[in-house]
C-alpha cells in the first residue's frame, strides 16, 4: 500500500503497514462503542467513551507519523486536554447523581418521558 509515498514513510511503517494501525484503532473504537452500549454503569460507559477517544488518538498518531505531519499529534493533545475537562464535568455529574439516588446505574434513570 501507499507505494507512491513510500520514500517519506517512517521506518516503523516498513515493518507494520498503516492499515494495521487503522484496523487496531477501529477495533478499539468498536470495543468502546460496544462497551457504551452494553454497560449500565455510568462510570464504565464513561470509560468506554474514553476508550473510543484513545482509539482516535491512536489513529491520529498513526496518520500523523505516516504523513510526517505534526498536526495530527497536536490534535491528540487537544483531545487529551478536552477529554480531561470532560472527565471533570462528567464525574461531577455522576457524583451529583450518586448523591441524589445512591446509584449510578443509568438504566434506573428513566423519569423523563413524554
Amino acid at each position: 500500500m501507499f507505494e507512491s509515498s513510500i520514500d517519506r514513510v517512517p521506518d516503523v511503517f516498513m515493518q507494520i503497514p498503516l492499515v494495521n494501525f487503522v484496523l487496531l484503532a477501529t477495533m478499539l473504537f468498536t470495543i468502546g462503542i460496544i462497551g457504551v452500549l452494553i454497560r449500565k454503569n455510568a462510570i464504565i460507559i464513561f470509560m468506554s467513551i474514553e476508550l473510543m477517544l484513545n482509539a482516535v488518538n491512536l489513529l491520529l498518531i498513526a496518520f500523523s507519523s505516516y504523513r510526517s505531519d505534526p498536526n495530527g499529534q497536536i490534535f491528540v493533545f487537544f483531545i487529551m486536554a478536552v477529554a480531561a475537562a470532560e472527565v471533570a464535568v462528567g464525574l461531577a455529574i455522576i457524583v451529583m447523581i450518586f448523591r441524589n439516588i445512591k446509584t449510578i446505574d443509568i438504566s434506573l434513570l428513566n423519569r423523563l418521558k413524554g
Partner: peptide, 17 residues
C-alpha cells in the same frame, strides 16, 4: 412513534448506533 422513543440511555445509544 413515541413508544420507540421512550427508554433509557442504552436504548437511545443503541438506536443511534
Amino acid at each position: 412513534v413515541k413508544k420507540i422513543q421512550v427508554g433509557g440511555t442504552s436504548s437511545y445509544l443503541l438506536f443511534m448506533t
